[in-house]
């Protein structure tokens, strides 16, 4: 019911392949879609385990945002173009 409709948000997040900032936002959307599904199923099963997992997902999403934003700031500090299609080389 609610869960199946709002999975669409997650699929919408997959659509985003542009600047790394927007990609991070799309990742947040996908995680939130999964969170909503977890909570909806927890409600329908009548157990609180889904809430625990949703809170864990929230913590993981927060740490992912920290690392991602750190990477973006490091990229901009080194005057790299903020475009994932143009970042094609790795250097140790």
């Amino acid at each position: 019911m609610i869960a199946s409709l709002l999975f669409t948000i997650g699929a919408l997040g997959v659509l985003v392949r542009r600047s790394p900032l927007i990609i991070l936002l799309g990742l947040e959307l996908m995680l939130n879609g999964a969170n909503l599904a977890l909570i909806a199923f927890a409600r329908h099963q009548g157990e609180g385990d889904g809430h625990v997992f949703a809170l864990t997902v929230m913590a993981v999403a927060a740490s992912e945002v920290v690392v991602g934003l750190g990477l973006i700031v490091a990229m901009s500090r080194r005057r790299l173009a903020l475009d994932v299609d143009r970042m094609t080389s790795l250097r140790g």
């Binding site: 927060a62 740490s63 992912e64 750190g70 990477l71």
Partner: peptide, 15 residues
Amino acid sequence: TSIVLLVAAVGGVIL
């Protein structure tokens, strides 16, 4: 989860 948050905080500071 607490370890993940700690690692993310250290990584954010280093980055």
